[in-house]
Design a protein around this nucleic acid. Structure first.
Lengths: 242, 242
DNA sequence: ATAATAGTGTCTTTCAGACATTATGAT
DNA sequence: ATCATAATGTCTGAAAGACACTATTAT
């Protein structure tokens, strides 16, 4: 079967693939790393948990990146969340509708800044701790694998970048920041060394020193200086396990 | 327009996108970093240089990765070249045939091991130094941008991984290896430190010590121990320029 | 005062990198 | 012998991390 493309060129149906963008939106809630999921209200995979992704609105978006940005805005209410492309996975078995392709993005957001969108189709939208994902029954499509790959990417990069900054609220202490690193890496981190290394990177600015009510000296609070690219530490923060 | 998918499900034409896989196959030839290009023999972009990519053969490949592997085998004759996914770029302006999507892979090969395929359509297939790309007239589609992004990825990762090993022949000296690093990074590298750091990584095995005819002590030759993942140096080899 | 956490100063260890020295080949 | 490059050994400086000590709050 040969047909005309949108612009009048010749093409075969086999030049085309089913395509979706699947954002893995991560945050930290009360000491848990969580991912934003929806419960599918339609076939295929009705009733199963899935990433809040889907088709892109080709007529209204000029390129992939802006499509992702607007999807993130729609889901989280955030204008400029940190996100990066993780991978594109494709195959015949991913989706019952046929050979399909999914491009996965990782977004890191501060939980407090998110306003979850009321879903127009009445789908349930929830933060799910990543440790619970296996237990919720199978996820739709290959989304569990896509989340796994994204978490691998995150853990890799947390070993030598400042990615966890994006989980933090506007102001935070080094103690809280270190907690985020430790949560993701699953390993403790020396207190003073961490402070020395992070502060020497010049990616934080001091804000206020506020009392948190605990019976101890209040910690300095910092704000993350927005940057274009993640900061890369000249040495690994923690040795990567091979 | 609503039509049936390959598996009989309902779908809209707008669920589909034009998709191609575009490998950026890199090697080093006589001190030049080169990329494998073809000259397009068909419209669109006839006569322009392009990446040796194209549509995937959906009926005959179960997933994206194996599609890439067979495409690399076909173009280079290599069974197990190193390759990794770089990014997926999509948009309305990339291809005159309409909204399309391209997934870019970076492959690193040793020039001597490659057997360039006779192209069935008689297209010219050549190694082109990356420094020449701008001068050859515009490349097809967005391929010049895709190559740029791939080179950025390569330069980034060469700063902290063993990727250049894949450019080397079966046996090589540390001098030759260091040359590859310096070529890609565009910066000199201290001789002894380089040796110390590479050898301490335990990713090389000694082979023979052969004379190269020069009037000096022959250098030890090494073979790269094949690994699943690139080795990550615990410290940056050269500070990344921001 | 005591408990708890923040922050600072000192010391040790490790390793990159500089430099000097020795080794091994060709001419 | 001389030259050229390989390999090894020694030294220095920088930074991570351990530890001790001081600072600041609530109770």
């Amino acid at each position: 079967m040969v047909f005309k493309t949108e612009t009048g060129h010749k093409a075969s149906q086999y030049d085309y693939v089913l395509f979706s963008v699947d954002p893995v939106i991560l945050t930290i809630i009360e000491g848990d790393l969580c991912v934003l999921l929806i419960k599918r209200s339609q076939e295929p995979c009705k009733g199963q948990w899935a990433l809040p992704g889907g088709r892109i609105d080709k007529p209204n978006c000029d390129d992939l990146k802006s499509a992702v940005r607007s999807k993130l805005k729609q889901k989280t209410g955030l204008d400029q969340p940190y996100f990066e492309q993780v991978l594109t996975e494709g195959g015949a078995q991913m989706d019952p509708r046929g050979w399909s392709l999914s491009t996965v993005y990782m977004a890191l957001v501060n939980h407090g800044a998110v306003v979850l969108a009321e879903n127009d189709t009445g789908e349930e939208v929830t933060w799910v701790p990543v440790t619970d994902i296996g237990r919720r029954g199978g996820m739709a499509f290959w989304h569990e694998m896509l989340i796994d790959k994204t978490l691998c990417r995150l853990r890799d990069k947390v070993g030598y970048t400042d990615l966890p900054m994006h989980f933090m609220p506007d102001q935070f202490t080094l103690h809280e920041l270190r907690g985020a690193y430790e949560l993701i890496m699953g390993a403790p981190f020396p207190r003073q060394s961490f402070a020395k290394r992070v502060l020497s990177a010049c990616i934080l600015e001091e804000t206020s020193r506020e009392n948190d009510g605990g019976g101890h000296r209040p910690a300095m609070r910092y704000r993350y200086k927005q940057r274009n690219k993640p900061f890369v530490f000249p040495r690994l923060l923690i040795a990567q396990q091979d």
